[in-house]
Design a protein around this nucleic acid. Sequence first.
DNA 1: CAGCTCACG
DNA 2: ACGTACGTGAGCTGT
Length: 886
Amino acid sequence: MAKQLLLIDGNSIVFRAFFAMHNQIDKFTNKDGLHTAAIYGFKLMLDHVLANFHPDAALVAFDAGKVTFRTKMYGDYKGGRSKTPEELTEQLPYVRELVKDSGLHSYELKGYEADDIIGTLAKEGDDAGYETLIVTGDRDLTQLASEHTTVAVTHKGVTDTEHYTPEHVQEKLGITPAQIIDMKALMGDTSDNYPGVTKIGEKTAIKLVKQFGSVEGIYENIDKLKKSKMKEHLIEEEKIARQCKTLATILRDAPVEIKLADLEYKGPQTEKLIDFYQKMDFQSFLKKMAVSPDDQDTETAPIEYTELTADNLDLVAKLGDRGSFYLEMPDPNYHTSPFAGFALGNDKQWLVSRDPELLKTPELKSWLTDSKIKKDVFNAKAQIVGLNRLGIALDGIDFDLLLASYLLNTNDNSNDLGKLAHEHGYDDVQTDEEVYGKGAKRAIPDDDQLFFQHLANKARAIEQLRPQLFEQLKKNEQLPLYTDIELPLTQVLAKMEITGVHVDAQTLKNMGSKLTERLTEIEEQIYQEAGEEFNINSTKQLGKILFEKLKLPVIKKTKTGYSTAVDVLEKLAPQAPIVENILQYRQISKLQSTYIKGLLKVIHSSDQKIHTRYLQTLTQTGRLSSVDPNLQNIPVRLPEGRLIRQAFVPSHEGWQIFSSDYSQVELRVLAHITGDHNLQEDFKNGEDIHASTARRIFHLKPDQEIDRNMRRRAKAVNFGIVYGISDYGLAQRIHVSRSQAHEFIQNYFKEFPKVKDYIHNTIEFARQNGYVETITHRRRYLPDINAKSFSRRSFAERTAMNTPIQGSAADIIKIAMIKMQDELEKRQLKAKMLLQIHDELVFEAPKEEIPVLSKLVPDVMDSAVKLSVPLKVDSKYGDTWYDLKK
DNA sequence: CAGCTCACG
DNA sequence: ACGTACGTGAGCTGT
């Protein structure tokens, strides 16, 4: 077998590793405060590569300083790059140490980049009959692919790689590896900062290269090109194109002194590695090395447990004043899930059982309800609701692993305890999938040993992770967010979910039959107009009818075919009566399937109520979401849909529905966090904000009237600002030209200069820190903020400015909910909080309490936090959710 | 299971 | 040259 050569592009892998883990940057520091994410990532990559590739020779190439023959040739080469963060550079010496201890050679060459070293050695390898694997984070190296050289480019993280062979390059780009150089010469490279030829991007570059073979080929045949702007640019910029080609070409003959024979791979030096991992605090790698190399899989540290029975319940009281508790509910819907078993305890003793009935015994019940005994759990709300079904009021919750993880990183929201624990570097617990299986095979194991071990492992994981997570919350200044907002909110949400909302099934059924009739009528008309029967719900079949059979103009396409979305159909409506009918059909069938049938399915027969679940650890902004069913998107905008709300009624005779909502809360938050004087003044003066925005951006005189169209446009601009505006997007929405939209935005920024500053500063903050935060220090990491891809980066920039606004608004209503629940209980009101819909709270209450709520709820809501502008709250009430009036 | 469409703030 | 406004959940079709 041919000898194998491994060449690693050190700098690019380190970069990739660093940025891939940037959103967990704080998790990766050792005792001395050294950041270790890049080192860790590099090690992961190394393990991954060596698992599949067994090199005889191996080398990691590094860049040597900034000055290379390329910068000498072209001063701006790699210019304009932001400085490498200190957190990364400090890791480089340790990466080299890791490389050495892992038995690989490293090498750098003054005046040359790592690429050139790799290019040169790969060529030597090719000539000497080696099979070569190049590992890099840089796509440019794919130009080195050959029959015996494969280039593995890391994708998302550092272990996910795409292997480029000449065939793969051909498949993806339609050109040879060598022609990648020509392509890059023409299109330029923004990250290396050389320009290429004006107006030529990837598509055009590939086309030209395919046609003429190379940059040189193009200029030999330049006369064959038709007269065009592109041709002019090519001629004008010939010198640049040829120079860029040199810049893009990786050297195959750099003066590398090291020889292949010097690169023998000897394997890792175990003892040095152990020392190194200890220095880095890499516990998981250390653990793997300690166990025998052939079974280092998913084994967890063994755990001793005691099965709890009616005869040994005295063990519970001996646990002391703190312990983990875990009640296993195999279905995600904890309102209805069966109970499979539970575990509790602490490092002194772990107690487990399959029998939920034991929880009702005095010994366990008093342990669970005693507020002085601190409990650590995973998903407190699920545990509270589950235990409530057994008649037990869980109290004394101190640590919720799920909630804390989510606050530290909104992406850590897996409902699987095992997965989440692994995210935090704790491996002594398996995932549910590993123990229970997945899909149809998923089941609680019959084997007691297996099941109890898993339960005990979960309880232990919670306990073990608590100090570490509290420490991180503290470091992020998030302890008050956890202690004073999210954890108390869990209790409030649990109460709302348990209360549920009364829904009258008969009302829904009556509406349903009417809708069915209308649906049949419309269906017949559509079939007649189409001249055949087809499935109207199928966008594919509908597209065929509209755009092929009826030959209507195609306005928009989706990835898979014709778009038939509302905005498209609205444009087509004047041209064919069928379109109006389809729109009608869509509207009604949506009501029928999602709201009539959907809601009927989830009314509990025991109490005629719907019990939604609020997901507290899902959204990236800090909002809640609602599932099974979603009660945050019950129709309201269109009159036909709004009728659904007639079915939402109070649960007692003589009660009413009461609702309060924040007015323009996001724009008020914007005024507050930007500190913009004009915006703040408008709110302080109690202006109609869209109208006053119109007055400002359209430069109206004080006595001039604001017509509805102006207000509508100004409102769209306000929304746009909050969402991260683009002139194109605004133009689409309010049907004006792009340049007009551009002008509106410019005017806005002139009138509200601090809003402009805010956008700029927030994006800059995100670039520096990798995250943004709300008024309560809720965090969202934005790994794409420094992405090369324009669209990914732009998206991250829009989220960077939107998240603090949407998220702070979410913070405000959460605080209001906690205070509100507190007031209801303190005043011993019968009223119940039922729903939260982002800026609105819905209650049910006896008629007599309506006057109390009319004052209390707005008072609590508008004083929830003190902003530099007033918060405004509007209230309504009525006999059903439909009939709300001021 | 992904993609489309549409309900809400 | 990119591909367009932020955050969600659910039902349906078709691979």
